[in-house]
Design a protein around this nucleic acid. Structure first.
Lengths: 367, 367
DNA sequence: TCAATTGCCGAAACCGGTTTCGGAACGGAA
DNA sequence: TTCCGTTCCGAAACCGGTTTCGGCAATTGA
């Protein structure tokens, strides 16, 4: 039954594409005139251009991107190579990220070509393939590194790209990024205002460009709050929950432990909960924590994790828009944007119940 | 500097594609002969065919898919339309799923076109666009519904597709699926062997096809264990953590509460932890739970969630392979496969510390 | 008034493939 | 030897677009 209605539907809407030849015949013009009219060539009169545009509209003509591509080399597709097993925290965002990209792309009649890679070398090979096979006109690069081989590759081949994140050498780069450094600074200031004096920092992976920046932000926060910097309170390479638990335990083992910790990555921050549970500490009272990402799991933790939330969907959308502009010829220097993460003040950051010394004393009796 | 080395690189590796015309000239054959030789036409002698293949190999000739497409209508691309906000538990799997698809696709020289949609209607429109614009030769349909409009659409337009999941009417459908019903049955049997007599079931969304099947599996488990079925112990529509907590509380409020719960969805099962924490129950002792999906969060829960783990990456890979076969003309009836989820027996399912009556008594004193 | 521009469009080549069609070469049968 | 049927390949048309080139008509300049 469904089958037969389907066929009926097919009869009424034969889904026959109207070609440029048909359109030109209907308008009494030549193919070439129609093509140039639609592509904005200057040697077409304004009146004809209008007539063609209207005709295309009413007949529902849309050029076949891969038919154009054979001459122009452009397929109206954005490329995205996802490195898996790279950074777990990327995963929950992926759907939103794709949604943003897809929305912006389809608004312009573009599509998204996705591939995955399990290593940097693999990612480079994959991008090379996509370029050679003309499966993408440009790339969105998620999670840029301070020294990023992908950037080098694309620069060398002069393929358009836009970074989600920044990089050490901005030459020829377009980007969209969230100012994680500002979030880290604000986190420190927030905790300082609550009365914390020893505020630790647990960074993400050192090779990521954002880690460098977030550390700067943490330091800026300490300076702004008039607090001294203590190297013992700065730790790093924590991306997953286990990492965060390990680093928390190390911090609490100090002679003068922190009463608050700023994490660069939510998933790592969730490890602090585990460590605190093991040590009998109340998160948000005995030990406060503020983190960054805004992962959904954070909201379900007890107490809910105070975190700077990133609008990943909006980021994807803006990145796609920037990349399309870049492919259309805009200079990369004009395509650089940043945005701020939004602080969601939940229950994990409160005034210190104990000072550092008292906390140390309590920890020594417990264990 | 990087720029100039880049240009040098470009000079040495001009990344000029070799065209079929160049290849045919090098072989002293005509374009048409080369084309037919590579595409397996019968009117080419075996020796020429071999010579052409070898020549293509050494010169590194690879046909440009969109140049072929203009004549054949096929672009060697798989389509995937992801419905977002649809089912949260889909998200953590997305990266793995894409990795599987991408791996299988690129092994055959195919690519993956991804789009997202925020509703079923939007998904249908998007698929229609991708078909008309020839951006995909076929589709992978994740999360099939019992009555799936996508299936109807693709059937009507006779576009190849493969389902991740099954559907009510299998006519013309190819699929790969995990036998969730077997997992549910085994979960019940496992709990029964541990001594549980009142085992509840919390299903996922009713519209999903898998929910129907998993309920059947639960019932089969009860029957196999010789346990009676109690309608009060069957609940549903729990996909997220909150849902799971709500349903758990409802089950524990019964006069004869269950001592174990089987969940159809991990994320919902994690809600049971919250409910138990609130009520002072120890998961795995006072209340046991077994679930399905194998989400990473489950392993971090305390105690770790016993769950049937789905190999999403393998599923994506197999789906892509099946879809490519389908596009190449294989009959859908020959492209139907299933696999089993792997039980990860962790700490959340143990022998009942209390019977149902004792549990009820304890709960009444607590509240 | 006439030549030189300019504005605007069509014819045809082109992009990189596929597919149709026809014919040369060959072998076997009459 | 002639005729016919195969086998195998090349020429050319084709797919749906873009781009080059040239030409006509209407303007402009002298």
């Amino acid at each position: 039954m469904a089958q037969s209605t389907g066929n009926q539907h097919q009869v009424f809407a034969p889904q026959q594409r109207v070609t440029i030849t048909q359109l030109s015949a209907a308008l009494g013009l030549s193919k070439s005139t129609v093509s140039r009219a639609l592509n904005g060539y200057p040697d077409i009169s304004e009146s004809t251009r209008l007539r063609v545009r209207r005709g295309a509209e009413t007949l529902g003509y849309r050029p076949l991107s891969h038919a154009q591509a054979i001459r122009t080399g452009r397929v109206r597709a954005l490329g995205l190579v996802i490195q898996i097993g790279d950074h777990d925290s990327q995963r929950p965002f992926l759907a939103d990220f794709l949604a943003g990209i897809s929305a912006a792309a389809s608004a312009e009649g573009w599509t998204l070509t996705v591939a995955t890679a399990d290593s940097e070398a693999h990612a480079l090979r994959t991008m090379g393939q996509l370029i050679e096979d003309r499966k993408a006109d440009g790339f969105i690069l998620p999670r840029t590194l301070s020294q990023d081989a992908r950037v080098a590759l694309l620069r060398a081949r002069s393929v358009p790209f836009v970074m989600f994140g920044r990089t050490a050498d901005p030459e020829g780069c377009a980007w969209f990024d969230i100012l994680g450094e500002d979030a880290m600074r604000d986190a420190v200031l927030h905790l300082a205002r609550l009365g914390h004096r020893r505020i630790a920092f647990v960074n993400g992976g050192a090779r990521y460009n954002f880690s460098r920046l977030r550390l700067q932000g943490y330091r800026a926060g300490l300076a702004a709050a008039g607090l001294p910097e203590d190297a013992a309170l700065i730790r790093g390479d924590a991306l997953r929950s286990e990492d965060g638990a390990r680093e928390t335990r190390a911090l609490l083992a100090l002679d003068a432990p922190p009463t608050a910790v700023v994490f660069a990555v939510d998933h790592a921050a969730l490890g602090l909960y585990r460590a605190c549970a093991d040590l009998g500490l109340a998160v948000g009272h005995d030990l406060s924590v503020i983190s960054y990402d805004g992962v959904p799991d954070g909201a379900y933790a007890a107490p809910p994790l105070s975190s700077f939330k990133v609008d990943t969907r909006a980021a994807g959308q803006r990145l796609a828009e920037l990349l399309i502009a870049r492919i259309r010829g805009a200079a990369p220097e004009t395509l650089r944007e940043t945005a701020h993460a939004a602080f969601a003040d939940r229950g994990s950051a409160g005034p210190p119940r104990l000072g550092s010394a008292a906390l140390a004393a309590r920890l020594s009796t417990t264990s």
